[in-house]
Design a protein around this nucleic acid. Sequence first.
DNA 1: TAAATAGTTGGTGCTTCACAGACGATTCCT
DNA 2: AGGAATCGTCTGTGAAGCACCAACTATTTA
Lengths: 171, 171
Amino acid sequence: MFRGLGRLGHMSAPPLEPSEHRSGALLDHLARRMRLRAESVLAPLGLRPRHLVALTVLRAGGGTSQQALATTLEMDSTNIVGLLNDLEAKQLIERRRSPQDRRRHVVELTDDGAKSLKEAECALASAEDEVLGALGPAERETLYELLRRAATTQVTCTETICGTDTDIDAC
Amino acid sequence: MFRGLGRLGHMSAPPLEPSEHRSGALLDHLARRMRLRAESVLAPLGLRPRHLVALTVLRAGGGTSQQALATTLEMDSTNIVGLLNDLEAKQLIERRRSPQDRRRHVVELTDDGAKSLKEAECALASAEDEVLGALGPAERETLYELLRRAATTQVTCTETICGTDTDIDAC
DNA sequence: TAAATAGTTGGTGCTTCACAGACGATTCCT
DNA sequence: AGGAATCGTCTGTGAAGCACCAACTATTTA
């Protein structure tokens, strides 16, 4: 049943005052509302929300290998292939063989990809207006910055040993 | 193809400096990462992320009808039934006939439900630590507050006329 | 040379979900 | 009172996402 996700200890932040405010459900809810609208808006561009996520990660992370992508997106490698096929067919990304390790494909955003991503984001403005309507411009920027920082944090634990499974059920 | 979602004008915020930062993709990405962990954590409790979302909305919104729930969750009414059946079977919610309109079911969180929700949120702490590891406690609280405000904004447009369909494709 | 790794392909099965159709109960309109 | 609309429920259907498995090639590493 369990998905075998590496439980990473994250001992950097000692549990000082663990506020009971969990944003998980809210995150889920808002993401759903956003995705519903994004699908409609993105359909004319031949893109799906998932593609946008991949492109966004690609833009932020630069050229990465496919399995690195699979790690950060937390998707199965086999499903990454199809996703990248879509994007490559539209020439939004490029797969180059890595000179260092010719087994690797270095995935990179093309100029078209960057442009297309920008267009898509522009098209998403109205969707975001609906979902984040309660927030002012400055607040949205704050939200964006927080999300960006949380999202671009590498899950470095994938390769490390990470044997600290001290279950903290104190709460 | 289109989902018939009421485009709400939101003319309160004039387009002053529409930052090109779209949080849609980031929201999606983080929600996915969170949900993957939440499923594992919530499984022992017999709950799924969707249930948590419903419970959270219920706690925030008090007793609402099922179709009101369907509106705020933006789910099909028929699927709401099954969702509520699950929660009612666990006695986390209660369906009472509305005295005003006996067709309506007033859905309310039970004490067990509130308790269970709290437990679940507690169990999600570790998951949130992994996903939001890059953010400090204060930042997480800020994030929570922003998400909460965005999420609890009623989509009042459902019933109103909302005839302002001035498509803003300036961008 | 043998083993491990990166990517690809194809296939299977589970789960979610929107949507449609039908039904009983209830309310609203005239 | 009679008819239409609404709320909730049940059932089924079909599409899509996704994890997982197995096999294969190309390449690197021990």
